[in-house]
Design a protein around this nucleic acid. Structure first.
Length: 397
DNA sequence: TCTGGGGTCCTAGGACCC
DNA sequence: TCTGGGGTCCTAGGACCC
């Protein structure tokens, strides 16, 4: 089964606003959740059903959305609250099975096969679960039931909101083949456009397409594409642990940055954020990456593998600075980002002949003390003097 | 006042090795 | 008659997802 919150951010904000005494339920008006335009974060994060009916699309600019929807109301996101609602929902679902794969803040898969004998008919169960979430938390979900994850995901996307759908193997031709090619999970804008050009407009057409013909255009991706179109998927439900494959933090500035000192200060703040997250989960990173986007929206990234995995803010900042310097062409910078990947749990070190070991130990002790202080007294209790007044605040703290 | 932020996975090319 | 073949690792960029 795939469980998916209907208009997650918007529903969750609606609940929060009602709780605070706001007189209207924003789920019932022309509304979106969107970023601040003056901060240049002005895109649609979630839309109400009526806004959707007017043609408003997720991720389009607020300006565009307002053009389509004259009375559009825009509300800011509240990530802390979203995380609370998300946790509460997964908690309810976890009561029924430990086999839960959390895909994102608002959706998950569960492997019902394992608990079918316990909870009975899947359709009956899904309706019950949907109602329980609605009654306890106040928002609706869609649930898709199928023989595999791909089809369950497709099914939960059928008619919304507050619905349970099945997409059993024998229903694939009837329910999935007529859909547009872009509706297939894993087929995005680019692939959809390529397929359309080749005359393939529906999922069914892709399922029946000539393999050799497609291989000329999609190479290794051809068979996975066709399998998906046929509703084939044998990936298991994997209980996803807390550990991530990578950690990143990026920010679009309200104004393009051109001064080196301002850019470095922001780079350092981003490094601090990702390092703190990394140390929180007691991991170390082998690869440091820096991304910039210039005023023309062109994005560049450089990354470097370290000899020794690290979680040390100073050490990683030094690498990040080098990466930035080697790719920055002095163009005004719109976005700056830092990523840590190739994470590991242990930090065995190759001792260096040249690196002073004492300095390294001091740095990591310093990190520990700073982390502890932040944990005990809040994240604003201590910070680097160079970062005072920095404009990157931790959104997810 | 155009165009977020956090992810995962894949590909292609180059360096390097035997 | 110049320049094979198999492999690994690293990096930059892109597609896709919510």
């Amino acid at each position: 089964m795939h469980i998916d919150v209907n208009n997650a951010f918007l529903s969750w904000s609606a609940i929060w606003l009602l709780k605070k005494g706001y007189p209207i339920d924003i789920r019932t008006i022309e509304a979106v959740i969107g970023g601040s335009e003056s901060m240049r974060h002005g895109i649609v994060l979630a839309k109400s059903p009526i806004a959707k009916k007017r043609g408003v699309k997720t991720a389009e600019t607020l300006r565009e959305a307002k053009r389509k929807c004259h009375h559009l109301k825009v509300y800011p996101p509240n990530y802390q609250w979203y995380r609370k609602m998300s946790k509460a929902m997964f908690h309810i679902i976890s009561k029924y099975t430990p086999d839960i794969e959390i895909l994102s803040i608002d959706e998950c898969f569960i492997d019902y096969t394992q608990v079918r004998n316990l909870h009975g008919d899947p359709l009956v169960f899904a309706h019950h679960l949907k109602e329980e979430i609605h009654e306890q938390l106040g928002f609706t979900v869609n649930i898709g039931i199928a023989n595999n994850k791909l089809c369950a995901k497709m099914a939960s996307d059928f008619e919304k909101p507050d619905k349970v759908h099945t997409l059993w193997n024998e229903e694939i031709e009837e329910k999935m083949y007529p859909l547009e090619i872009g509706d297939l999970y894993g087929v995005g804008k680019k692939t959809a456009a390529k397929l359309q050009e080749l005359g393939i407009h529906t999922i069914g057409a892709l399922a029946h397409a000539d393999e050799d013909f497609l291989k000329k255009y999609f190479k290794n991706q051809t068979m996975p594409l066709i399998w998906k179109a046929k509703g084939m998927d044998d990936t298991p439900v994997v209980v996803v642990g807390e550990e991530r494959k990578g950690i990143s933090n990026s920010t679009t500035f309200a104004y393009n940055l051109i001064r080196t000192d301002a850019i470095l200060k922001n780079l350092q703040a981003l490094v601090e954020n990702v390092c703190i997250s990394l140390r929180k989960q007691e991991q170390f990173a082998y690869v440091v990456g820096v991304t910039i986007r210039d005023k023309n929206f062109k994005t560049y990234s450089h990354q470097r593998k370290l000899v020794n995995a690290s979680s040390n803010s100073e050490e990683i900042f030094e690498v990040a600075k080098e990466l930035l310097q080697e790719m920055w062409n002095e163009e005004p910078i719109r976005l700056l980002g830092v990523s840590l990947t190739n994470l590991t749990n242990s930090c065995q070190r190759q001792l260096s002949l040249f690196e002073p070991e004492e300095q390294r130990k001091t740095n990591s002790e310093l990190d520990k003390v700073v982390d502890q202080l932040k944990k005990q007294y809040g994240s604003t209790i201590i910070q680097k003097a160079s970062l005072v007044d920095n404009n990157i605040s931790k959104k997810y703290d």
